[in-house]
């Protein structure tokens, strides 16, 4: 058991440079795998639909997840509500490869997150800044992603969260040793993890981008900002031509620095998902504010 956490961090390392796609059934999972996704995220409704239809969003039907597991050979992830440790127990029982304790679903606990250390299965969690990322890692998350603003097709929040995290890390790195405890207090982050960032200048786990990525250029933007890979939620299956777009986003994530290739990759993809201006959302509609 003692090296389980290392093995779980290691799986995230294998996903680097790749795209993890939201899928709602086995057929979409097949399309994602065929396009070159490194993993799929099984969920009942993509964030854009959760946003539109409202209501409580919960863990998916285990039967649907199992069908996806039987269909694809790449890792299968699935979401649980923040703090809903029984949903996590259920997903562990059906051996999904990664659990996303996600703000996209309706939180089950408005104070606490799951104690992820208690599980053998790895967890990925969203974060808007360094403090939030380190709190989740402190609880046992072995992978972090930006929260972005899921289901909007608008990348601005993912950019903000990544830039905030980078700025926070630069500050921690540049601080003197005697300032670290006060920074830990200010960020609400475990002191030992602040020390880790001070020494290494990065998170102790892999960090992906998520929330609002809709085009190959969005994916390459996040990669150039320094994330290790990307999650694409509604961006693919809410677009005009999911097959083409999925493939294009995969290509752009690998060749994120090759401008000529990016131009070619971005050609003729059909319609992107309709985007939402973040300012038009009421504060209660912002998913990123869920999580503590």
């Amino acid at each position: 058991m003692e090296n389980r956490y290392e093995l779980n961090k290691n799986l995230a390392q294998m996903l680097k440079g790749g795209v993890i796609m939201d899928v709602t059934n086995a057929e979409q999972a097949k399309i994602a795998e065929a396009a070159g996704a490194v993993a799929v995220m099984a969920l009942e409704r993509v964030p854009a639909d959760i946003r539109k239809e409202g209501g409580v969003a919960r863990m998916s039907d285990p039967k649907m997840i199992r069908e996806i597991q039987e269909t694809v050979s790449i890792p299968v992830m699935a979401k649980v509500r923040i703090g809903h440790f029984v949903e996590a127990q259920i997903l562990e029982a059906i051996s999904v490869d990664y659990i996303d304790e996600s703000e996209v679903l309706t939180p089950a606990d408005d104070v606490n997150h799951i104690n992820k250390d208690e599980f053998k299965i790895p967890f990925v969690c969203g974060a808007r800044n360094l403090g939030e990322a380190l709190r989740r890692i402190g609880e046992g998350a072995s992978m972090i992603r930006t929260k972005g603003e899921a289901g909007t097709g608008n990348v601005v929040e993912a950019v903000r969260h990544m830039r905030t995290m980078l700025n926070d890390m630069r500050r921690v790195q540049a601080a003197s040793a005697m300032e670290l405890m006060t920074i830990a207090k200010e960020y609400g982050a475990p002191y030992d993890l602040i020390k880790y960032v001070h020494e290494h200048g990065k998170l102790p786990v892999v960090n992906f981008a998520a929330g609002g990525i809709a085009t190959p250029a969005d994916a390459a933007l996040m990669m150039q900002l320094g994330v290790d890979g990307v999650f694409v939620g509604s961006g693919i299956f809410k677009s005009g031509d999911p097959v083409k777009r999925a493939k294009a986003i995969v290509e752009a994530t690998t060749f994120y620095n090759d401008h000529v290739k990016l131009a070619k990759i971005s050609e003729d993809l059909g319609e992107a998902m309709v985007g939402i201006e973040i300012d038009t959302l009421a504060p209660t509609e912002l998913l990123a504010s869920r999580g503590w």
Binding site: G36, V38, V250
Partner: peptide, 8 residues
């Protein structure tokens, strides 16, 4: 990594 993704 993922052989299917790299292969694609």
């Amino acid at each position: 990594g993922e052989s299917t993704a790299m292969g694609k």
